[in-house]
Design a binder for these strands. Sequence first.
DNA 1: TTATGACTTGAACAAGTGTTCAAGTAAACC
DNA 2: GGTTTACTTGAACACTTGTTCAAGTCATAA
Lengths: 193, 193
Amino acid sequence: MKYAESEVIEKATTLFWQKGFQAAGMRDIQQALDMRPGSIYARFKSKEGLFQLVVEKYVANTQQKLSTVIDDNNPLDALRAFFVSELINPEEMRFQRQCLLIKSITELEMLGDNGKQSVLDGMSTLRTCFKSIVEKAVQTNSLPASTPVDKAADWLQNQFVGLRTFALMQTDDLAIESMIDKVLIDLKTSWPE
Amino acid sequence: MKYAESEVIEKATTLFWQKGFQAAGMRDIQQALDMRPGSIYARFKSKEGLFQLVVEKYVANTQQKLSTVIDDNNPLDALRAFFVSELINPEEMRFQRQCLLIKSITELEMLGDNGKQSVLDGMSTLRTCFKSIVEKAVQTNSLPASTPVDKAADWLQNQFVGLRTFALMQTDDLAIESMIDKVLIDLKTSWPE
DNA sequence: TTATGACTTGAACAAGTGTTCAAGTAAACC
DNA sequence: GGTTTACTTGAACACTTGTTCAAGTCATAA
């Protein structure tokens, strides 16, 4: 085995994150992984099989980052720090500002059933994380007890999606931070109904 | 000329909106438009030329809808109505919940310079519309005079992006409406700095 | 030592891609 | 009436796509 699986997945993640599933051709993948088609197919079964592993690893990774937010004594500050670290990064990593899952959702119908399911499962996994964060914030009195947890979880994930698209196109880092602050303000204010 | 240009663009819009630029193959386009390759190339120069016209028409169309919001006496109510009409529609039009521009942004790098510019110009055109709405709302005292207009315009466009992705995946229309209401609440509350 | 099985190579394949082109049609203009 | 112009047709083109396969490598287990 020439390269460890984690190495390979990492390189594949970068490629899929930059180009998307469709646009990343097998020849791009072969070059990025420094592997020949036969190796890739023997190890990952297909382009989609590789993509699926990438998505699952991406979700697990994000989930882990979010779990440190949940475990923080001040979850809202930790959440802010998480947002900043995900959205403000050097130019050569700009592509990482977009969410790999959201990017994949736009090409969901071009994926087979397995790939599709991985993406959707990932979305729901992360939603659960956001819910836990809101719950923790309520427990620690960082948010009012009246906060509608489920609604706020959807909203928060939603804000994250919007922020990522905004950050992707935005060159002014301060504008991004300002947008993050707005999210934290609105999280504490009132909810409809 | 077998079909009027507006007809053709309309059909092409549906296709690109559903499948995206890349995934909509020339053979899909030929079928959707009921035209043979030569006709398409004689009239639109290339797949990207057609796409460009579609994007420009889409932007002009959205711009026009937003200008009725601007001209409304109660711009915030009109804005809410606009959101509802764009985000809550029958199942067979679900694909229209996603923003064609945002969908295109994810495949921006696969477009040539002209197509890319059309998409970016469209984004900035719509931002200007959102700014006018905020300005109008301030003028009519629907929003506090202290509202930072530029920041709010970015924020509003951003919210629209998030809402569209949310609505795309959401089956419960009430949850979408609730999310729209949250936007209108937050628009009126405080801003960072 | 031999056998197994996971992994690797690189040429090849069938199907799909966007695009071109010679030829034809028909309305508009001189 | 003749010429131009915009449009149409459908076969064909060169290239790219994801995938396969026979053959080879090499560590581990029997």
